[in-house]
Amino acid sequence: MSEFARNIRLWFAPEEIREEGETPDYRFSLANERTFLAWLRTALALIGGGFAVDQFLPHLSWAWRAGLSLALLVSGVLCSLRAINHWVRCERAMRREEDLPSSRFPTLLSLAVAVVAVAMVAVVLVGRAG
């Protein structure tokens, strides 16, 4: 996590990224920017899902509704933090001509979304039966 703390400083310090290595082909930087935006969209979709669970499942008990909604919202927040962190890391790796950083995050996010989806199906089915 200390690596993450160091990256946070870079989010607000454009000069420090520019100082390192060589400026890559702008097309690579723009592709990196689009990847960042794609992750941010994923985060916004998860946040929208959090809003939706709260509104469109009114028959659930408060605890389940709040739990599922908060799970989606928290994963949305993590996803947006990851978006900018990965963008900074990729930008720096390209300037240093290193390999792009690998990450476990996509796996973790898929598992979290799968768990929330299964929980939602179970809760809705049980709610309908009961």
Partner: peptide, 25 residues
């Protein structure tokens, strides 16, 4: 190039929306 500050501001907007949603829930 996209400035990191610009990217951070966009990220903060998304996080702020999530915080609002949590407050609503």
């Amino acid at each position: 190039l996209l400035a990191p500050r610009h990217a951070a501001a966009a990220t903060l907007c998304a996080i702020a929306l999530a915080v609002c949603a949590a407050a609503l829930v």
